[in-house]
Design a binder for these strands. Sequence first.
DNA 1: AGGAACAGGTAGACAATCTACACCCAAGGC
DNA 2: GCCTTGGGTGTAGATTGTCTACCTGTTCCT
Lengths: 115, 115
Amino acid sequence: MKREREVYRNRIELLQGTLDMLVLKTLQWGPQHGYGITQALRTRSGEVLQVETGSLYPALHRMERHKWIAAEWKVTEQNQRARFYRITAEGRRQLANDRSRWDTMVAAIASILEA
Amino acid sequence: MKREREVYRNRIELLQGTLDMLVLKTLQWGPQHGYGITQALRTRSGEVLQVETGSLYPALHRMERHKWIAAEWKVTEQNQRARFYRITAEGRRQLANDRSRWDTMVAAIASILEA
DNA sequence: AGGAACAGGTAGACAATCTACACCCAAGGC
DNA sequence: GCCTTGGGTGTAGATTGTCTACCTGTTCCT
């Protein structure tokens, strides 16, 4: 287990399967590019969530294939080209689904931990 | 992704890495054998958490190797031989650690989802 | 004799994530 | 002109926990 490493870092590996939900949620705030998503998740979580590029980009491509998000090349405020993603209607459905599953699971775990 | 399956079942695959924590917590209520742990988690979570034997037994063996739990063959009330596990001091430390990480992550996710 | 429930277990596939790279561009300093 | 820093996208390969789908054996009840 990776958890045996001496230094614990707050990678989302602990919550495998929640990255998609987090990305979809981020895109609900407005279109964003990969780098921007990473930063948004980091700052909005109080520096807790660190998404690796090796996790993020495959996830974005996967979600694009599933048509949960749609992409477009644009130029950033820094005048750099970047791939902007926006959430689709299907993505919103997926997000609602993920959230409901997440809430159920967290409640279930809580009922165990607080027993 | 496994999540593409039509029927969603509440397997802990969604929260990969939390099984150890749940098992340790269960053992804090008292020594228990594998089959009993599965049932305890299922009933105490309101039938939400379904731990597969193919996940549980490898996890138990892993945790025994790490000395988080210790095992002993005994006979159940049903007069069947079973391997009873109890949590060790190291296991309690691990549990505290896991819990703290879990709480941090859940709070971080919540801060994203509720933004 | 047969079946349901109890109990432990494994082999092999799967898939998300991580580590560690590579590449390109823009802006600013010197 | 050159170099560094930060922005931005991406992949290959390894790791690893979990799942699916099996198997074995026992006890108890009818």
